[in-house]
Amino acid sequence: MSQRAAKLIFWVGTLSSLALFLGMTWDTHRSFAALTHADRLDANVVAGKRAFEKYNCNDCHTILGFGAYYAPDLTRAYKRLGEDAIRLRIASPEKVLAGSYRKMPQQHVKPEEIDRLVDFLRWVSDIDNHDWPPQDSATRWKAATRRLIGGAAMSPGAALVAQENCLSCHALGDAGEHRGPRFEYIATRRDAAWITRYLADPEAMTPGAVMPAFGTLSESQRRSVAEFITSLADRSTP
């Protein structure tokens, strides 16, 4: 190979890749507004991002898969855990994670900062990023739920979930709210015995829990609800 050919490889290789990269950068900027729902990116969300950086959250957690890998990914934390569970973890990690083998620091985050962090995580959870991460994929959550719907109408647990209005706080499939954790997530995390006890007295199991006690339900009714929830654990697509 001649010196000339070598220089040609250098310039053609570098400039073609650079042109492609800059061109796509320009086009990507045109797409960000729609893909991130920039219309919902208000001052509260920005304040939340500042708090997120102030407390160095990203050096333990990942978000969009980036950061440190020491704690759960936060991209869909709002959809997975819900607002109240997020608040509780930030405000009193020492209580929520008392039994956990991994701790989160108590950073004395101010109440208004917690509100903004929730705003930020709510906005992030709606970002359209080709359904990543897989463990929080809405498509996968809902696939299992849809499969269950036929049988669920017959299940006493499902009837109790409707009767007690659980979905005014929790999410299930396409329905429900994001105050508490999504049912499908609870199913992967807890067993029926644990949920049965939790329903009777949430405060006893998680100090500071916001959820009301369902002591009015009988032990067997609470077990039916628990069994309905744990039946959502299987997320394999049929």
């Binding site: 796509m24 990507t28 991130t36 969009l64 898969g65 970002i127 359209d128 990023n129 990543w132």
Partner: peptide, 11 residues
């Protein structure tokens, strides 16, 4: 840029 809310052509 696969999963950061950028267009699909990045894949």
């Amino acid at each position: 840029y696969y999963w950061i809310a950028a267009p699909r052509y990045w894949l």
